[in-house]
């Protein structure tokens, strides 16, 4: 079934983030599966409008509404682009996923 999420890139890190709203509090998380998803377009636009506050708070860049598919509780992007955004590159990286130190801040609590 088609649903929608809000997604963008973290300003400081550049990594992909999805909006999760919990108890009225916005968080930007790294995993699509844990993002808040809504079925109808208007609700998505409302969520997006709220997310603009996090653009102004210098947390997130270029948030937009992405269509997703929810089947048997499994969530995935509908387009190839969103599937790759959610799961990462489809080819192994030359050095594995090695990175120095803590990459940090995959979750950022909105003000």
């Amino acid at each position: 079934m088609a649903h929608r999420v809000i997604t963008g890139s973290l300003l400081r890190e550049g990594t992909i983030a999805y909006l999760r709203v919990e108890n009225g509090c916005r968080r930007w998380i790294a995993t699509l599966g844990e993002a808040t998803h809504v079925a109808d377009k208007d609700a998505a636009e409302t969520l997006l409008a709220e997310a603009i506050a996090d653009v102004e708070a210098n947390l997130i860049v270029a948030p937009y509404v992405a269509d997703i598919r929810v089947e048997d509780r499994a969530v995935d992007g509908i387009t190839m682009r969103e599937r790759i955004r959610a799961a990462g590159p489809t080819i192994p990286l030359p050095s594995g996923d090695r990175r120095r130190g803590a990459r940090g801040d995959e979750e950022r609590r909105a003000a």
Binding site: G14, R85, G88
Partner: peptide, 8 residues
């Protein structure tokens, strides 16, 4: 510096 699909 570009902002790409997964990162800068």
């Amino acid at each position: 510096v570009y902002l790409q699909l997964h990162a800068y």
